[in-house]
């Protein structure tokens, strides 16, 4: 952007921008130093200690990490379960969120009510959500298996066990998570409002149908929020825990025993806060690496403001 400015003021401008940049970021930078840095560094320190949350922590070097990496089967099981979950939940979450937003970005009658209904699972009590999932996914009485019954008999197969079958449980948890796709939906909707109307008008004049308009205009211009939800989906996916805690208790056969779940158990059940802290930092590190890789996709994001 500086290229259009007169040469003389260029250096001045850049200099000024540095100061201004820090000034604008200062609320967050101060918050980082005052409120965030200490708890995070403290937990990093705790990861090198033995700490039962009653007596003072005692330094034991790398022992916690060594135990986790070399003599704890559940650590690897839970890490793998979590990776599996992320690989499945992130793309599915994106697709459903985008579809919902596309569906609800119309001027159809009662659209406000529909949007509100689809957002509801984000504020409804988790107990109520759990009951819905039971009602849908139970192998014997669940609505889904009743609907699929003709299909099962057609192919002469056993009904799917959903969350009670170790080979389906992770997928079922992902499906259950899709009920909160309304959360990302509103972000997409907000972004869709920023798409200049004349783009659509121009496309219509060219005779483009609605699918082509979605593909050539809406989706490319939504990439900033798709990218956002993609990164946030990864970060949130690595912390998956609550649904498994309520629906499966980590089972069957530890198939939904996620990293966050194991960390919780280490802290609350086993009183091993040092080990739990070590797990937290492993999780942060793994998430960070994958996020940094994912950030490279930024180059495919179409920021309207940066097109010349």
């Amino acid at each position: 952007m500086a290229k259009k400015t007169k040469d003389g003021s260029l250096t001045l401008l850049i200099k000024r921008e540095k100061k201004v940049g820090f000034a604008f970021a200062s609320p967050w930078l101060i918050g980082l130093a005052v409120f965030t840095a200490f708890p995070m560094l403290a937990s990093f320190f705790l990861s090198f200690t033995r700490y039962d949350m009653v007596s003072s922590p005692r330094f034991i070097g790398l022992t916690n990490y060594r135990i986790l990496f070399f003599s704890d089967n559940l650590f690897w099981t839970s890490l793998w379960n979590t990776l599996y979950h992320v690989m499945l939940a992130v793309p599915l979450g994106l697709i459903v969120g985008i579809l919902l937003a596309l569906l609800l970005n119309s001027r159809i009658r009662g659209i406000g009510v529909y949007r509100t209904i689809f957002y509801l699972p984000n504020v409804v009590s988790i107990v109520a959500m759990g009951l819905l999932w039971l009602w849908l996914f139970q192998p014997h009485f669940g609505l889904i298996n009743q609907v699929l019954d003709p299909v099962y008999s057609l192919f002469n197969m056993d009904p799917i066990g959903w969350y009670r079958d170790a080979s389906w449980s992770k997928f079922t948890i992902v499906l259950m998570g899709l009920w909160t796709a309304g959360g990302s939906m509103i972000i997409y909707l907000a972004q869709m409002q920023d798409i200049p109307k004349e783009y659509y008008e121009a496309a219509e004049i060219d005779g483009a149908g609605s699918l082509r308009r979605i593909y050539h205009i809406t989706l490319p211009l939504m990439t900033p929020s798709i990218f956002f939800n993609f990164i946030m989906g990864i970060i949130a996916g690595f912390q998956v825990f609550a649904i498994a805690h309520i629906m499966t208790g980590g089972g069957p056969a530890r198939s939904t025993y996620y990293f966050g779940y194991y960390l919780f158990d280490k802290m609350i059940m086993d009183h091993q806060m040092g080990s739990a802290s070590a797990m937290a930092w492993v999780l942060l590190f793994v998430t960070l690496i994958i996020t940094i890789l994912a950030l490279r996709l930024n180059r495919y994001v179409f920021y309207l403001g940066e097109q010349d």
Partner: peptide
Amino acid sequence: MIPPQAILIP
């Protein structure tokens, strides 16, 4: 990316 439980006590 840090699980919130890990920084609760600090």
